[in-house]
Write a protein that binds this DNA or RNA. Structure first.
Lengths: 199, 199
DNA sequence: TAGCAAGTTGACCGCCCGGTCCGTTTATTG
DNA sequence: CAATAAACGGACCGGGCGGTCAACTTGCTA
């Protein structure tokens, strides 16, 4: 089914160059950068980019897929951690740190049409659900918070910090801490709205 | 300086139509909708739109200016409220409710080049600082949180809720409650990063 | 080292966007 | 009601985008 003759040496190198250039460009200037700019940053022609990735969305999907898989690996490892509360916080820290982008919406947008990304995302979401369940049973997060809540809140620290004009690149840590405090059972006030359907 | 002959009746009506159509279109489909779509929704020609607003950004700025001024009015009124903690929560509720948009980034983007918006935003930010200071002195928010923090967190509930696929339009209330719990002094853990420079 | 498939490239295409312009319509007013 | 300035509308323009292609170059292999 997949004969997949191995890539020629230069082609493999160029593919890595393109992925790196695209990741940088997306991170620095948002999802609206042109493919021409990405190719230029990689030192390659636009045609080469389209030989490796049929579409701009495919390129984005390839990047996102890597990130999601890496994040999922961390999540699954943390399922065995001794302290479930600390494990969840660690997971959210890694998630925010690794995806230091101006616009994290790609999680949603890139999966829109790519089945691989959708599958990886669902796998990762399952890990989050488990992490949250464990933390809740352990009394580390409030009883009325679900995995879906945490998934939605996951990108918020980066989003919030991205609007501070002249801020340290680590400012997201502050907002992750505030939001995580909001997830703790101590001093929790009842929530005015039911959780969203599971993701 | 401003002779400003009053608008013709139809022109005034069309201006309102355009603002309403643009607000709806921006809210439903994001900032990237074309001016042609906005004009069509208003039942008018594209040329008419540009007669009232020299640029697409000017149209956005007009909408944003209205919202910011309205929000600021609420904020200033709440400065006299009996319970400073409840006042801050009420302000954040109004802010999130009134600006139920998929992308709130316009706060930053629209002010980028329009002096009126910048001024109105700064006025509104001052109100937030006062609300937060009062709430802090009253023990309703933790001591290590600043007005700038709250300004940045203000848009988060909408942002977070907007990524839930089939959710109630009021889901933001849930995340506002969680985040606000994170701002309370009870059970607060020390923050790992200093606050951003004041806005 | 010769031959060739794999890979590269940038000019090119069609599309859609924000913005302009001018012939036409219409509210106002004396 | 006539005259006029204000307002309207849509064909049109330049530009930048994602994506294609055919001529050219290059790594692999026998």
């Amino acid at each position: 089914m997949t004969p997949t003759r191995p890539l020629r040496a230069d082609a493999a190198r160029n593919r890595r160059l393109l992925l790196a250039a695209a990741a940088d460009e997306f991170a620095e200037r948002g999802l609206d950068v042109s493919v021409a700019d990405i190719a230029r940053r990689a030192g390659l022609g636009k045609g080469t980019l389209f030989r490796h990735f049929a579409t701009k969305d495919d390129l984005l999907a390839a990047i996102v897929l890597d990130r999601i898989d890496a994040l999922n690996a961390v999540g699954e490892q943390l399922l065995d951690a001794a302290d479930p509360g600390a494990a969840l916080l660690e997971f959210l820290t890694v998630a925010a740190d690794q995806q230091r982008q101006r616009d994290l919406s790609f999680l949603q947008e890139a999966g829109e049409l790519n089945a691989d990304v959708t599958r990886a995302r669902e796998r990762m979401f399952r890990s989050v659900h488990k992490l949250v369940d464990r933390a809740r049973e352990h009394g580390a997060v409030r009883a009325d918070v679900t995995g879906a809540d945490v998934i939605l809140l996951m990108c918020a620290p980066n989003y919030v910090a991205s609007y501070a004009p002249d801020a340290s690149p680590d400012l997201w840590q502050r907002y992750l801490a505030i939001i995580f405090d909001g997830l703790r059972p101590e001093g929790a006030h009842p929530l005015p709205h039911p959780p969203p359907p599971a993701l």
